Simulated scan of single mutants.
Amino acid sequence: MKKVILIMALFLGVTACKVNPFTGKKMLNFYGNKQIFPMAFAQYDQFLTENAVVENTAESRMITKVGQRIASAAERWLNANGFQGYLNDYKWEYNLVKDETVNAWCMPGGKIVFYTGILPITQTERGVAVVMGHEVAHALADHGAQRMSAGTLQQIGAVAGNVAIQDERKRNMFNQAYGLGSTLGIMLPFSRGHETEADRIGLQIMAIAGYDPTEAAELWKRMKTKSGGQAPPEFMSTHPSNDTRIQNLTAWAPLAKQEAQKFGVTTFQ
């Protein structure tokens, strides 16, 4: 049994690599679009039936407008860099939902939700573009599928340990240590890496779409003020700290503008 589990883990690790078009790095991902997108689309449709979707308002139309510009910019970049057809399976959809939660998200395949609670933070169309670019970047980089893949490997490791350790006391100690160690040492850094990657890709895409990328750092300054500076230590969080994001986004904004210039974009909204 132990050999079977180890062989499965090795097989998945070797065969589950896909290249991230924006970074050129291999990604851990053994869930293809045809597997994960239908599930995501079904969950999205179910979510919309259970929540208050805001329609035909200036704010909801702005969400759609920005989303379409960001998706178009992403396609321009992908086509220019040899990834024609990368978005063929994506079904972009943008909805504003009445909810005071300060959040937005994008499911695999391009299904996006903004909560009304984040609009006081975004403030303007440019602010919406910051969040939209970040969320679209998660979908483009297959972060959802990668998290599922990492979670599967984490479970395989736990099963392997429990099969290998016969002594109940030692097995309990292993489970406690493995759960904490794999979470703090692997899963949380993995998640923070995705957030940082989405920040950088999103900044680039919003600039190509014609939105000023310097707004990103300003938005996170507002987010920091909103939170009152209260946050867990970065190593215990799924996201980088506000200060880390502000520092990164400030440094990356000029590079995003340079990338946009390759597409003839020299002025920004």
Rank of each mutant, 00 (worst) to 15 (best):
L12S: 02
T116E: 05
M62I: 05
N172Y: 10
L10G: 01
G82Y: 01
V102P: 03
T15N: 05
K111H: 09
P240E: 04
N103M: 13
A145V: 01
T57W: 09
T152R: 03
Q269H: 15
L87S: 10
R76D: 14
Q155H: 07
Q35D: 15
I205R: 03
F268E: 11
Q258K: 07
Q230H: 06
A145T: 03
K257N: 01
P120Y: 09
G85V: 05
Q261H: 09
Q68I: 11
N175P: 02
K65V: 15
I121N: 14
A137H: 05
S237K: 05
L249T: 04
F114W: 13
M62D: 14
G117A: 04
P120Q: 05
V14P: 00
P120F: 11
K34F: 12
S227G: 15
G13D: 00
K65S: 11
A198V: 11
G210V: 06
G210T: 14
Y90P: 04
T23A: 03
R126I: 15
F174H: 00
A71M: 13
G67Y: 07
Y115L: 13
L87H: 01
V136A: 14
R169E: 12
Q123T: 12
L249R: 14
E55Q: 05
A164S: 03
N81H: 05
G157T: 01
F11Y: 02
Q247V: 14
P120M: 07
M39D: 07
E93S: 11
N103C: 07
G202E: 04
T250R: 12
L78I: 04
E234Q: 09
Y211P: 07
P21V: 08
A71T: 14
V4S: 04
G133A: 08
A129C: 12
V66I: 10
K224Y: 12
A164I: 06
G210Y: 12
F11K: 01
A251V: 13
A216M: 12
K3Y: 09
F83I: 06
L255Y: 11
A145S: 08
V163M: 08
M107L: 12
R222W: 08
V54Q: 02
V163L: 10
N33V: 15
Y178P: 00
Q84W: 02
A40L: 03
K224Q: 15
V66W: 10
H138K: 07
T101N: 15
A207S: 08
V19N: 01
A74L: 13
Q146S: 15
